[in-house]
């Protein structure tokens, strides 16, 4: 096993590092604050840095996020482990394809630097309004709340989606995490190899479209069967949380950092609880530590 060095990087670099290791194709379109997520792998690919499979990932800049999502969808259908990075209205442009990617039970991870959706004014900064606009797409939504978690969750997400077949939107707060520099323990390629189950990768490839064993996807269905077919995906969603937990446990065994679907911090006999996701969680944790030290029964 390689040693895991400690490095001081921002959330995007921490995440991009993982994405580069476990992806084959990245179709992207630059948008703040996610631009760095694509730029780093592009530079690494230009320098010949390989992923854990021994190939150099192909980073392709498209004409829009809509185009990037289309290329991602196509690449996934043709059997390449594919990812993209985006935020805000860019994410919203991907929604049409996200419905299809989920409806086709396609494993993938999109890394999203959660950013305000422009309303009365544009804002390049962080909140969850973009991510929340994707609730109906059928994607798993996986929130990391620190630079360390951004890296860790990226790998957990890539590993788990291969088994659950539920595509996963991995998000963290734009700027606050994406651009925050923090000291983290870096995951290695061996960690990535340990997390990614190659049998699941092979299964993914076997589902890919190929004229050697052709299938038809993207049919048009009528009222007679659409509803039934739409319900056929239910078991995958029922199974998804346990699979996520399984890979968190696997990750914990590997690295010692244990995560859960819901992590509770604070007094076991707490009377007041804050529920929160994202970078605010660290704030609450700090506050709870402070207050419990003074006898307050709070938690998050």
């Amino acid at each position: 096993m390689e040693k895991r060095p400690f490095v001081t990087v921002d959330g995007n670099e921490a995440t991009a590092n993982i994405a580069h290791m476990v992806s084959e194709v990245m179709a992207i379109y630059p948008i703040t604050p996610s631009s760095g997520l694509g730029e780093l792998p592009d530079a690494w690919a230009a320098a010949g840095r390989k992923n854990i499979f021994g190939t150099v990932p192909d980073v392709v800049e498209m004409q829009s996020e809509a185009g990037a999502a289309g290329a991602v969808h196509g690449s996934l259908q043709a059997g390449a482990l594919t990812t993209t990075f985006t935020a805000s209205q860019g994410l919203l442009l991907m929604i049409p394809n996200m419905f299809k990617i989920a409806g086709e039970l396609t494993p993938t991870v999109f890394h999203v630097t959660a950013r305000t959706v422009a309303t009365h004014a544009l804002s390049i900064f962080g909140d969850h309004s973009d991510v929340m606009a994707c609730r109906t797409t059928g994607w798993a939504m996986f929130c990391s709340s620190s630079v360390q978690e951004a890296q860790d969750f990226a790998l957990i997400a890539h590993a788990a989606t291969l088994e659950s077949r539920v595509p996963t939107l991995h998000f963290y707060d734009g700027f606050r995490i994406s651009h925050e520099v923090n000291k983290i323990q870096l995951l290695t390629e061996d960690d990535a190899r340990a997390m990614i189950d190659m049998d699941l990768v092979a299964a993914f490839r076997r589902r890919a479209m190929s004229p050697e064993r052709p299938v038809l996807r993207g049919t048009a269905q009528n009222p007679d069967v659409f509803f039934q077919a739409r319900e056929a995906c239910n078991p995958f969603y029922q199974a998804c949380p346990a699979i996520m937990q399984k890979y968190m446990d696997k990750f914990a065994a590997l690295t010692g950092r244990q995560y859960h679907l819901f992590d509770y911090f604070g007094a076991a006999d707490a009377e007041r609880v804050i529920v929160i996701m994202g970078s605010g969680a660290g704030v609450v944790e700090e506050t709870v530590d402070y207050l419990t030290a003074r006898g307050e029964k709070s938690a998050w």
Partner: peptide
């Protein structure tokens, strides 16, 4: 092997096949 993604992205969808 045939698939339909959306109305607007058949070129990109096909490009995705090629990339993969």
């Amino acid at each position: 092997a045939w698939s339909n993604s959306l109305f607007e992205d058949a070129a990109e969808f096909g490009l995705g096949f090629r990339l993969a």
